[in-house]
């Protein structure tokens, strides 16, 4: 029963990792952009929510009404004004430029907010829990986060496979040059893609900031967790990313059950093991 509990808690933990990963997976899938600043955008979303909640008295969930459009706009503008210029020059330019953005965000937050920890307060829901038979307690909040992750991925699947924009995203991902010859404005589409990716990044940032403290330097580890979920799941597969997040969460829970200090390490080790055994992840789709 203890292991069932670990499995459940780990799977739920995977929900937030899947949310971390969606934006990264999207920008890689559509424009082959590996966004090193992704984790910092998650943290930045938390800070935007912090400012909004303090300035308006809104609770963190409601603040999403402001945080999401702000991050969408930031994503759109960054891709249009900056990142589009990096996409034709090989591996280094996008990597370097997003590295630069990462450092700018981290140090900008450090200068603006100091190195202190922050948290978003959502009240009773944070600690509420459901009692399942067999003495297993499931937190309402992790359950909610998991549900949001599932809903987010389902809506992205809908976007990709049931709408014209999604069709264009997939076409551009297959062959950007031909898509342009068919009348698609790749640069605009890429900007839209990063904008949409940022919507999920914003949700991830706020949900994560409610349960966990964050500081200006909290971004890189989120990037790594997101990256691990994407690779474990297999590039280009959104449901795979959810599974990847769950595998990561379960590995961490198992590690934490053995010794609390082993939590993060166990996740990394599971990632490296999968990398060696199945280099293309569990459900590969996109060819690099």
């Amino acid at each position: 029963m203890q292991w069932l509990n670990i499995l459940i808690q780990g799977s739920l933990l995977g929900g937030i990792y899947a949310l971390f990963a969606i934006g990264l997976s999207m920008s890689f899938g559509i424009m082959r952009l590996v966004n090193i600043a992704h984790g910092d955008f998650i943290v930045l979303s938390g800070y935007v929510a912090l400012v909004v909640t303090q300035a308006t008295g809104l609770d963190p969930f409601s603040s999403l009404a402001i945080v999401v459009p702000v991050m969408f706009a930031l994503g759109y503008v960054l891709q249009r004004g900056l990142l589009n210029q990096t996409l034709s020059g090989g591996l280094l330019p996008p990597l370097l430029v997003t590295f630069g953005i990462s450092i700018i965000i981290q140090n900008g937050l450090l200068q603006g907010f100091g190195a202190y920890d922050h948290r978003l307060q959502e009240g009773a829901i944070e600690t509420a829990s459901l009692h399942l038979p067999g003495g297993i307690d499931v937190g309402v909040y992790p359950l909610l986060v998991f549900a949001v992750a599932v809903f987010a991925i389902a809506s992205l699947q809908f976007l990709f496979y049931r709408t014209g924009v999604g069709r264009a995203f997939r076409a551009v991902s297959d062959d950007a040059n031909t898509a342009e010859l068919m009348g698609i404005d790749n640069r605009k589409l890429y900007a839209l893609a990063l904008g949409i990716a940022m919507i999920f990044t914003a949700i991830a940032g706020v949900l994560f900031g409610i349960r966990t403290i964050f500081d200006p330097a909290a971004g890189p580890i989120r990037l790594i967790l997101a990256f691990e979920a994407v690779i474990i799941g297999g590039l280009g597969s959104m449901w795979g990313t959810l599974i990847g997040g769950m595998v990561l969460g379960i590995a961490q829970s198992v590690g934490a059950a053995l010794d609390p200090t082993w939590q993060i390490l166990a996740g990394h080790l599971a990632f490296l093991a999968i990398l060696i055994l199945r280099p293309n992840g569990l459900f590969p789709r996109t060819r690099d």
């Binding site: 590996v34 990597l95 691990e228 990394h268 490296l272 990398l275 690099d288």
Partner: peptide, 14 residues
């Protein structure tokens, strides 16, 4: 490529 980059980072974290 870029995945090599982040992979090396994970190793360092480990």
């Amino acid at each position: 490529g870029a995945y090599f980059a982040i992979g090396t980072w994970v190793v360092s974290e480990v």
